[in-house]
C-alpha cells in the first residue's frame, strides 16, 4: 500500500507530506517524479503537495497540469481512487479539470500565512469521516492564490451534491461561499487550500490535520 506523492519542479511541501505519512501516520509514502508516465503499482492514494510548481508562472497550477504524470493521475482518479490536492495541489486539480472552479489571487492581493479555523461541512467522505459534522478545526493556510471562485450554477451544483467539504469560519481570502475545500461528485478527489500536514503534530501547534489522514488511511485499509 503506497501513498504516492507527486513532485513537480517547484513543489515544496513534498517532504512535509512525506514525513507526516511516514512518521506520524506510519504508512508508506513514495515520491513520484512529474516526468513519470505511471504511478507505482501498489499506489492506493495520490497526494499532490503544496508549493510553487513551475514557479506559479502563467497561473498557479497551469503548467503542472501538462506534466507527463498527470495522465496517470487522471486515470487513477477516473477509476475512483483517492486523490488529494493541497494548496498548489488543489490549484493543479482545478487546472486539470478534476475539480470545478478556479483559485484566484487573495482579495488582499497579499500572500497570507496563518492558522485558520475551518468548519467541516461534509463528514461523509473517505477523507473526513473521522470528523464530526460542523466540527471546527484549525489548519494553517499559506497561499497567495487561494481565493476559490466558481459561477453560481457550479456553486449550486456543489451544494446540491454536498461537495463543499470545508469552509472558512472567517473567510481570509475572498473565496466564494467561504469555500476552503471541495470534493468531486464521485467523492474520491479532494482539493483544499489549508494544510493538514502542517497541523498533524502537537509540537507544531495542533493535530487536527491527523484526522484527515486517519480517515483516508482507514478507508484504504477497510477497502482491502
Amino acid at each position: 500500500m503506497i501513498y504516492s506523492i507527486i513532485r513537480f519542479p517547484g513543489s515544496n511541501c513534498d517532504w512535509d507530506m512525506y514525513y507526516v505519512l511516514r512518521d506520524v501516520m506510519n504508512v508508506v509514502p513514495q515520491f513520484v517524479d512529474y516526468r513519470e508516465k505511471s504511478l507505482p503499482q501498489d499506489t492506493v492514494a495520490v497526494l499532490i503537495p503544496g508549493g510553487f510548481s513551475y514557479g506559479d508562472y502563467l497561473r498557479s497550477g497551469a503548467i503542472a497540469r501538462f506534466s507527463p504524470i498527470m495522465d496517470a493521475v487522471k486515470k487513477f482518479a477516473y477509476a475512483g481512487n483517492p486523490v488529494i490536492g493541497i494548496c498548489n495541489g488543489f490549484q493543479i486539480l482545478t487546472e486539470a479539470g478534476l475539480l470545478p472552479g478556479a483559485l484566484r489571487s487573495n482579495d488582499s492581493l497579499n500572500f497570507i500565512c496563518k492558522p485558520q479555523k475551518l468548519v467541516v461541512e461534509n463528514n461523509q467522505t473517505i477523507f473526513t469521516k473521522r470528523f464530526d459534522l460542523k466540527q471546527t478545526v484549525m489548519f494553517p493556510i499559506a497561499h497567495g492564490e487561494g481565493n476559490y471562485y466558481c459561477d453560481s450554477a457550479t456553486l449550486q451544483d456543489l451544494k446540491d451534491h454536498h461537495q463543499i467539504v470545508l469552509r472558512y469560519q472567517n473567510n481570509p481570502n475572498g473565496s466564494t461561499d467561504d469555500i476552503a475545500g471541495i470534493i468531486n461528485q464521485k467523492g474520491n478527489v479532494l482539493g483544499m487550500m489549508p494544510h493538514p500536514e502542517r497541523a498533524s503534530e502537537a509540537v507544531l501547534g495542533g493535530e487536527d490535520g491527523k484526522m484527515l489522514f486517519q480517515s483516508l488511511i482507514e478507508s484504504m485499509t477497510q477497502n482491502v
Binding site: 515544496n12 511541501c13 517532504w15 512535509d16 514525513y19 507526516v20 503544496g50 497579499n110 500572500f111 497570507i112 500565512c113 496563518k114 494553517p140 499559506a142 494544510h195 500536514e197 502542517r198 503534530e201 509540537v203 507544531l204
Partner: peptide, 28 residues
C-alpha cells in the same frame, strides 16, 4: 507585526515550533 509577518510562509518544512510566541524563533 502581523501585517508584515503573515505575508511570509513561516511554517513550510514543518519544523517551526515558535515564531512570535518567543523572544527568539524556535526551529526543531
Amino acid at each position: 507585526k502581523g501585517a508584515i509577518f503573515e505575508r511570509y510562509d513561516s511554517q513550510v518544512q514543518t519544523n517551526t515550533i515558535s515564531t512570535t510566541q518567543s523572544d527568539a524563533a524556535v526551529v526543531r
